[in-house]
Every structure is written in C-alpha cells, then in structure tokens.
Computed example of a mutant assay.
Amino acid sequence: MDEIDEILLQWYRYELAYRPVAGYAGGSCNEYRTSRQWMTDDEYDAEVTLAVDQLAALVVAPLVAALDIRLRIAVTTAVRNLYAGYTVWLNPQYPATQASDYSTAKRLLRPRLVMAGLLDR
C-alpha cells in the first residue's frame, strides 16, 4: 500500500462514518459539544482519527468525483478491498480492467493531491 492508497483509505473511512442529519439544526446549538472529560483514550483517538480523515476527505472527494466513471468505480472497488483487508469486492462493470483503471486513476490523482498539499512530490 502506498501513500495514495492511505489517503484514499482516509477518504473512504470518512465516507463510511458520514451520517446525514435529519431535520433542522438551529443556530444556537450548531457548535454545541459535550465535555470530553469522561472519554476513554480509545474514544478520543477515534474522534481525532475521524477529524483527520475528514480533512483529507474534504479534499479527496471532489478529486475522485472529477474522475471518469470507469476510474471512479475502480477507485471505489480497490479502496473497499483495501479497507476489508482482502479481495472481497469485484468491479461490477469493468472487472477485466480493474487493475489498470485503478493505476490510471492513481496516476491522475497524484499531481492533484500534490497541489492540494496531501502528498509530497
């Protein structure tokens, strides 16, 4: 797994954790947070990890969305397998070209991730 895979995994973890809010969030309670004083270390680590993943996801999501549909499917399939740790998911539309499509997508994403400051040259 290389650095682009790690960034894409951060994006995917955040996308999995996202839950839309039903209803209206009032202006007086928008930024309310409960105290962290009773959090365990694991809970706090999970919160920090989610915040870091969110920062990467806000940059990566539009970059992935700008890719061709074939490359987006390849990215999603590959990252789902990386997240699972095994090859569980198969590309539903282009299984024969999954590996080459994913490498093409990574090649196209690299300069954009460098420009966004997520990767070093």
Score class of each variant (00 low, 15 high):
A116C: 08
L82E: 05
E15M: 13
A65N: 10
A65F: 13
D42C: 06
E6W: 05
A74D: 03
D5W: 07
D101T: 04
E31R: 13
A61I: 02
R110I: 02
L118W: 00
P95D: 08
L55G: 10
G85Y: 05
T34K: 08
Y44R: 06
G117W: 02
L50W: 04
S28Y: 13
V75R: 00
M115F: 03
L119F: 00
P92W: 11
N30M: 12
G85K: 10
L108Y: 03
V114G: 03
R110S: 03
R72S: 05
S100W: 05
L71M: 10
G85P: 09
T49W: 03
A66N: 14
D2T: 07
A66Y: 02
A116K: 01
L82C: 06
D101H: 12
L9A: 12
D41W: 04
V88H: 11
L108E: 04
I69D: 11
G85T: 11
V60P: 01
L71Y: 00
E6F: 06
P20A: 12
W89V: 08
L119K: 01
V60L: 05
L108I: 06
P92N: 12
G27C: 15
G27R: 15
I69A: 10
P95M: 11
L58S: 14
T104G: 03
M115Y: 00
V52A: 06
I69P: 01
D2K: 10
L8I: 08
